[in-house]
Nucleic acid binder design. Structure first.
Lengths: 358, 358
DNA sequence: CTGTTAGCGCTTTCAT
DNA sequence: ATGAAAGCGCTAACAG
């Protein structure tokens, strides 16, 4: 049932190498220059004439030379590895972050190593061990880890560069890259209000969570714009899970004042609301409008497809990588980079049904 | 809006290191032995007395020594990195694979580097470039890449070890680790037949895909067991996407002989069938039973929760890593390791509604 | 602009 | 069972 490498002529690590590796010495010899010159070309350094540089590049190309990252790592005391710490909340989001960072990292000669934090309580130790073990040159911290004040406080004294994606706690010295979810929530809500919705509800994540607070603030901004007050919004809190969305959805739909629209702080909880609506026999969007956040795959797979908010993950991760590797050519500013998000309107929202008005 | 590291006192890679690194020389000096002895302890090699070994270990512990993986990599010509090539089909599945392989890899001192294949047509070149660039010691190929005969043929001559997760083409020299989805499909279908379903439909992925063929075969096994024939099963093909599930679901539900149960080759397509059922006003499970494969999060988030098949990802990836690193202590056998899957029964299946019988 | 000389921290090889 | 020496392939620091 199970095979062992040795028994099937299967080469395990280090067992049998065949193709000879081309070294920098070889290239230097072929090009008739010193290996230092080759090194300079490799690292895009100055100090090589254009002619020599072109010649060396040509030789490298021809020989199919690939620099040995291990040797480079040792000699330059960089590993050319970047760490990405995550906390498996939304798989598709995490993979998007990975894809975005990988694309940018590879372009700069780096690879991305993922690290999942199992126990959020011991996250700092976990991350530190990971960084020491892996030797990564820098670290990207993703939400919700990036929201943890404690983690950041414990990490800020470490000596590797880090950036965090979408976090609060602007007081920490760790630069952050976020998108403007408050503004996104505002325009989302604005549309609902324009459609005529007046009985709104918000299902947040944990009340203390950054995304919850920012998204709620955006909703309230919209209410204010329309001359409404805090009383016009029912606020309940979940924990970003499907189950919590379902529970809070049930509570809202079975309550005395059923909302005509529910804004959810993420798509998972919105899916839970769909579930609750199905249980209660409430039609979406005819009797209930629902919106989410994150534009995860589930948003397009729900029926009807869910209106959600999409963040510019590619651009955000590209910046993160550039900051970590010191390759940023962007203009200077403070330590918070903010991007704009996009509301993806789908069929989960509609003009409220008159039946709801009674 | 955007910050540059230099401008905010943010340490980019290699800019400012402070904490002194402890080297093997240091440990050797503290322990009063040669660094070779320390190296032996590090690598669990023989040739050190128990007493000396314990002493060295103690010193290492005390000093908080962490071996430099870059130096180790260069000297031993291993990178202690394992590659995981994937093809973003099902994010939660990919992350499960990652988590499983990471756990096993870390235990052996390895890290896992992911690599997404963008263009499936040029997958081989892409993978080869990745492996050369990253210097990974071995490669794990995941589905659907692992099903590609062409990719495997192009890769089999490379000189790094590889394993594939869930692939067909047993003729190639690349060992594979799979689970028994045929048997799982059998027991799934068996249950439907026991429940009294007689009008079954199967929505496969592409007809030529391994999972499609294996799962279909399992269904047919069950039919045979119950004395039914191929005529008792309607077979249609999708492409594992939500959209294709929806299309085929609509076709089946609007067709002349509406099935009482639809077995889908994955959860995404089952979600599409839910969508189709909603459109057609068909109640699940009262009027239609649906099952999926993979037990992805969507399975539990659909309403009603979807019966699906869960594969032992952890165990499979642990074996994959052991095979790549040559650390396998399992008994020898042929080059296919097969695990058993588990049917996770939820509320998407029920005894067929009499109305359907006419 | 180009080259030389030393290492990076560890493993390997071969002594003892 | 232990240790000394010689690199791994590259970059750093300095020379010309």
């Amino acid at each position: 049932m199970v095979c062992r490498p040795e028994d099937v002529g299967f080469p395990a690590v280090g067992s049998g190498m065949s193709k000879k590796t081309i070294t920098i010495n070889e290239i230097a010899r072929l090009a008739g220059v010193s290996k230092k010159s080759v090194s300079r070309v490799l690292n895009d350094e100055q100090g090589v004439s254009d002619k020599t540089r072109a010649h060396i590049k040509h030789i490298m190309q021809e020989a199919g030379y690939e620099p040995d990252r291990r040797a480079r790592a040792l000699a330059s005391s960089r590993s050319l590895l970047l760490g990405l710490a995550y906390n498996n909340r939304n798989p598709s989001y995490i993979l998007d972050l990975l894809a975005g960072s990988q694309r940018a990292a590879n372009a700069l000669g780096y690879e991305v190593v993922m690290h999942q934090i199992a126990d959020e309580g011991a996250a700092a130790d976990d991350v530190i061990r990971f960084m020491r073990r892996s030797g990564c040159d820098g670290l990207i911290i993703t939400p919700p880890l990036s929201e943890s004040a404690r983690l950041l406080a414990d990490l800020v004294s470490e000596d590797w560069p880090m950036v965090r994606v979408a976090g609060d706690h602007a007081d920490f010295a760790v630069p952050q890259i976020r998108y403007n979810d408050r503004t996104a929530a505002l325009s989302l809500t604005n549309q609902l209000l324009k459609d005529g919705h007046r009985e709104l509800a918000f299902i947040g994540g944990p009340a203390a969570a950054g995304p919850t607070k920012r998204r709620l603030a955006g909703i309230q901004d919209a209410l204010t714009l329309h001359g409404l007050t805090a009383d016009d919004l029912t606020i309940v809190y979940g924990d970003f899970t499907f189950e919590s969305g379902k529970q809070q959805g049930l509570a809202l739909l079975q309550g005395s004042t059923r909302p005509s629209a529910i804004v959810c702080a993420n798509d998972e909880m919105a899916a839970g609301v769909y579930h609750a609506a199905a249980v209660c026999g409430v039609a979406i969007p005819a009797e209930l409008s629902v919106t989410g956040f994150d534009d995860s795959p589930v948003a397009s797979h729900l029926y009807p497809p869910l209106t959600s908010v999409r963040q510019p993950v590619q651009a955000m991760m590209a910046l993160a990588v550039q900051m970590l590797t010191g390759d940023s050519k962007r203009p200077p500013s403070d330590r918070i980079a903010q991007f704009d998000a996009e509301v993806v309107a789908r069929e989960s929202t509609a003009v409220p049904h008159p039946i709801n008005a009674d």
